[in-house]
C-alpha cells in the first residue's frame, strides 16, 4: 500500500465518519443514517481488491468505534467492516480479470455488504450482550440501513472508485 493511497483512504474515511455523525443525523430515518464509511470500504475493495479492502475496513471500523459519540465496545465495527472489505474484494476477484465491475454488480455488492456489515455488527452485540435490543428492532434497523446504502451508493461510489482508480499504478 503506497502512501498516497493510504492518505486518500484516510481522508475519505474521516469525511464519511464526520458527515455520518454531524450532518446526516438531521435526515435520519428512524435514527438510521446512511453508512458512508461502509460505502467507502466497498469502493476501495472493488477497485483495489480484498487485501486493501480489509485493511481499509479495519481502519474505518476502528475510527467508527472510537470517535465520539460512539459508546459501544470497540472492535465491533472494525470486525464488521473487515468482513465487508473481504466480501467486496471477493466480488472483484471472481469477476473476469481485466474488466471493471458493471453498475448492477456494484449495486448488488453494496446491498450484500450493507446487509452483512450491519448483521455482523448486530450479532457481535448480541453475543457480547453490549446493548440489549430485541430481534424485531434489529431487523428493522438492518433493513432501513440497507435501503439508505443502496439509495446513496450511486452518488458516493462513482466518486470513491474514480478517486482510487486514479491512484492505481499502471501495470
Amino acid at each position: 500500500m503506497n502512501a498516497g493511497r493510504a492518505a486518500l483512504a484516510a481522508a475519505l474515511i474521516s469525511l464519511a465518519v464526520v458527515l455520518q455523525a454531524s450532518v446526516f443525523d438531521a435526515f435520519a430515518w428512524d435514527g438510521v443514517v446512511p453508512d458512508l464509511a461502509l460505502l467507502v470500504v466497498v469502493g476501495a475493495a472493488l477497485v483495489r481488491g480484498g487485501e486493501f479492502g480489509m485493511v481499509t475496513g479495519f481502519a474505518a471500523g476502528v475510527i467508527l468505534d472510537l470517535a465520539p459519540p460512539a459508546d459501544h465496545l470497540a472492535g465491533r465495527w472494525a470486525l464488521a467492516l473487515l468482513v465487508v472489505g473481504y466480501v467486496a474484494g471477493r466480488v472483484r476477484q471472481d469477476a473476469r480479470p481485466g474488466t471493471t465491475p458493471n453498475a448492477t454488480t456494484v449495486m448488488v455488492t453494496v446491498a450484500a455488504c450493507s446487509f452483512v456489515g450491519s448483521s455482523v455488527f448486530a450479532l457481535t452485540g448480541i453475543i457480547l450482550r453490549d446493548p440489549a435490543v430485541d430481534f424485531g428492532e434489529l431487523l428493522q434497523v438492518i433493513g432501513i440501513s440497507l435501503v439508505w446504502d443502496v439509495l446513496l451508493a450511486p452518488l458516493v461510489l462513482p466518486v470513491v472508485m474514480a478517486a482510487f482508480r486514479r491512484l492505481e499504478p499502471a501495470r
Partner: peptide, 10 residues
C-alpha cells in the same frame, strides 16, 4: 453536534 447512529444501537 453529532448523533450516534441507530446502527450502533446505543
Amino acid at each position: 453536534i453529532g448523533y450516534g447512529a441507530s446502527q450502533s444501537f446505543s
